[in-house]
Computed example of a mutant assay.
Amino acid sequence: MVKRNSAGALTDEERPVVKALLKKGWRNQDIQHLLNKGRVATINSARITEVKADASITAAPKDDVDFFIRKKDAYDPVTGLNLYDDERLIRAREAMMLAVQSFNSPTLRFKAEQFAVQSNIAWTYLLHEHYSRKGVDIVGKDGRSLLLSQMIKRHDFPLSKGVSNNIAAVIKIRDAVEHKLFRRSDEKFFSLFQASCLNFDEAICELFGDRLSLKSELSFALQFAKLRFAHMTELQKHDVPEHIEALDAELEKGLSEEEKADLSYKFRVVYLLESATKSKSHFDFVRPDSAEGKEIHNILEKRVIADEHYPYKPGQAAKLIADRSGKRFSSHNHMQAWKRYKVRPKSKAKQPEQTNKDYCIFHKAHGDYTYSAAWVDFVVEKISDADEFEALKATK
């Protein structure tokens, strides 16, 4: 945030103020408390005593003292930001908070428009502060400050290529909303906006410290009410004007496949539906670049359901189980087994395809079920226990 003082030292600005406060009758501990507001390295009372004993120090004028006190009282105890020294960072954080709040608000209709504008402001303030502290003149001879589109193209841009690509995409959306109606296109850009939020929080922490994180002040939540994937797919097809579809294509123009897949450019999650009762069903959100996400991706890519994986009809499965186990195991026992271990729905179920895919699949073309070798192994192991086999035979 502001330029900090070295440990135990008073600045040339502070010494005259301390002299003035001493003359006004302030106690050493009260002056020390005032001076240490917003400091990383605090001073001790001895420094104040030194000012008191140094006759060469002249007391600061009243206006200077009043402003010094006002400035010290302008520190945010949570972030450590000062209203006078860190105005750009305060504005940057507030602009991003407004962007998220407006997008999440149920009463606002122009969500994409609001987010695109406010987030551009947030990123502009953030990068202006970064370059200003690096000694870069952010105001040109024409009196105009560096544009966000210029800063993300600089060779010394401090963040990743994925972040700059994401910002560039949101800039294009911001430019488009000035001239065209977006109608109901908010969902179209959600993944870009989510990435922008996460990128901003990571960037402000990386460049200016973890105390500035927005995580404790904003909650990014995805809410689902009776979510149906088919319905969500249909939503993507309707209410999106042609010029928005064209803009969506323009955003990724020139990006490589690797850049498009960068999570800093566009946020993605893997939706993992866990098998559970309706009252306990839920979604797990997994980052695609995590170990679990990669495993799920491999399963989605490589585990292809095919008839050859489920070669056995019920009678064939029952015979194999009998041969392998050495026990009498009829087709009726096989029916009891799939009921007991819940590997398929009952006959005439509304969703016959809802099976345990490790053991069984439903063939829509001819309306029956076939079973895998894993199912045979599973049942053979189960009925090797005499008590379990008796329990199975009692299943209705």
Results as ranks from 00 to 15, higher is better:
residue 15 R to G: 05
residue 17 V to G: 03
residue 18 V to A: 07
residue 22 L to V: 13
residue 22 L to N: 08
residue 23 K to M: 10
residue 23 K to Q: 14
residue 24 K to H: 11
residue 25 G to T: 10
residue 25 G to C: 08
residue 27 R to E: 15
residue 27 R to N: 14
residue 28 N to T: 13
residue 29 Q to L: 11
residue 30 D to T: 13
residue 31 I to H: 03
residue 31 I to G: 06
residue 31 I to R: 04
residue 31 I to N: 04
residue 32 Q to P: 00
residue 32 Q to L: 14
residue 32 Q to F: 01
residue 38 G to M: 03
residue 38 G to A: 06
residue 39 R to Q: 05
residue 39 R to N: 05
residue 41 A to E: 11
residue 43 I to R: 02
residue 44 N to G: 14
residue 45 S to Y: 01
residue 46 A to L: 09
residue 47 R to T: 14
residue 49 T to R: 13
residue 50 E to F: 12
residue 51 V to Y: 07
residue 52 K to L: 12
residue 52 K to T: 14
residue 55 A to H: 06
residue 56 S to P: 00
residue 58 T to L: 09
residue 59 A to V: 08
residue 59 A to G: 04
residue 62 K to V: 12
residue 63 D to S: 13
residue 64 D to C: 05
residue 64 D to R: 11
residue 64 D to F: 01
residue 66 D to F: 05
residue 66 D to T: 13
residue 68 F to D: 05
residue 68 F to C: 09
residue 69 I to Q: 04
residue 69 I to D: 03
residue 71 K to Q: 12
residue 71 K to F: 02
residue 73 D to L: 12
residue 73 D to Y: 03
residue 73 D to I: 00
residue 76 D to W: 06
residue 77 P to M: 10
residue 77 P to S: 14
residue 78 V to Y: 10
residue 81 L to K: 10
residue 82 N to V: 08
residue 82 N to Y: 08
residue 84 Y to E: 12
residue 84 Y to P: 00
residue 85 D to G: 05
residue 85 D to V: 01
residue 85 D to W: 05
residue 85 D to S: 12
residue 86 D to I: 08
residue 86 D to L: 03
residue 87 E to I: 12
residue 88 R to S: 14
residue 88 R to I: 05
residue 89 L to E: 04
residue 91 R to P: 00
residue 92 A to D: 00
residue 94 E to I: 08
residue 95 A to F: 08
residue 95 A to S: 15
residue 95 A to I: 02
residue 97 M to F: 08
residue 98 L to G: 11
residue 99 A to K: 07
residue 100 V to I: 14
residue 100 V to Q: 12
residue 102 S to F: 07
residue 102 S to D: 13
residue 104 N to G: 15
residue 105 S to V: 07
residue 105 S to A: 15
residue 107 T to D: 13
residue 108 L to W: 09
residue 109 R to D: 12
residue 109 R to S: 15
residue 109 R to P: 00
residue 112 A to L: 01
residue 115 F to N: 05
residue 117 V to A: 15
residue 120 N to S: 15
residue 121 I to M: 11
residue 121 I to N: 13
residue 121 I to T: 13
residue 124 T to K: 09
residue 125 Y to S: 05
residue 126 L to A: 05
residue 126 L to D: 06
residue 127 L to H: 04
residue 127 L to W: 01
residue 128 H to R: 09
residue 128 H to G: 10
residue 131 Y to R: 02
residue 131 Y to T: 07
residue 134 K to Q: 15
residue 135 G to S: 07
residue 136 V to R: 02
residue 140 G to L: 03
residue 141 K to Y: 01
residue 141 K to E: 06
residue 145 S to L: 00
residue 146 L to D: 00
residue 146 L to E: 00
residue 147 L to R: 09
residue 147 L to T: 06
residue 148 L to D: 01
residue 149 S to P: 00
residue 150 Q to W: 06
residue 150 Q to G: 09
residue 150 Q to Y: 05
residue 151 M to F: 08
residue 151 M to C: 09
residue 151 M to P: 06
residue 152 I to V: 14
residue 152 I to H: 08
residue 152 I to A: 07
residue 153 K to S: 15
residue 157 F to G: 06
residue 157 F to N: 04
residue 158 P to M: 04
residue 158 P to K: 07
residue 159 L to F: 09
residue 159 L to Y: 01
